[in-house]
Amino acid sequence: MEPWAIGAESTIFKTEQWGRPIILKWRPEKPYLLKEIDEQLRRTRTSRECKMLTYARLLGVPTPAVHWTNLASCTIAMDYIEGRQLKLMAGTLSRSLLHELCYRFGQSIALMHRGNVVHGDPTTSNVLIDGKSRLWMVDFGLAEWNATLEMKGVDLHLIHRALETTHWDQQEDMLAGVLEGYMSLLGSDAELAFSRMKSIRERGRYH
């Protein structure tokens, strides 16, 4: 089978099951890494992603449904979402629709944070928009439970970072949309997370 996409840690195949398209997300061995580290990462992330895709949905975040998981081969079969990455769409949308989508991206992150879950890699590559402008979150391999304020702050910091690197010409609008959406659900808790985000940002070099 030809890969449909090569991700950072996985190879993605698109296939069919019961007449419907599905995605196989396979975490292949990486011979260039130490075997002990590689195996541990592949297994824990596959297991975590499988559980987290379902748990995030329980918290109200749209995610592709998991059909089956094979921990031996580190493969997850999940729904194929007919959509495009927000990363690729952002430059083509009207300002109001982009704001709306970022607002809902912020709300999705807020729903997870309210359930003490962090996504771990909340870039615009991992936000899919389907044909009906519905938003889906994917790629939960770095997600974590029992999230502390620090972990939520890191999550927000990563969004900020992704916007400034990938959407430099729209970053202010997009960040404003995300933060408004986040605040709309979390109220005063959002303020705590925002101020932690700022302090994490300043820990980077040269601030």
């Binding site: 890191v154 400034e164 430099w168 010409d169 820990r203 980077g204």
Partner: peptide, 16 residues
């Protein structure tokens, strides 16, 4: 670091 737009942008760095 990678070039994007008109700048070299830091996609990732150490947090400590």
């Amino acid at each position: 670091i990678a070039f994007a737009g008109n700048r070299f942008r830091t996609f990732g760095e150490t947090l400590d």
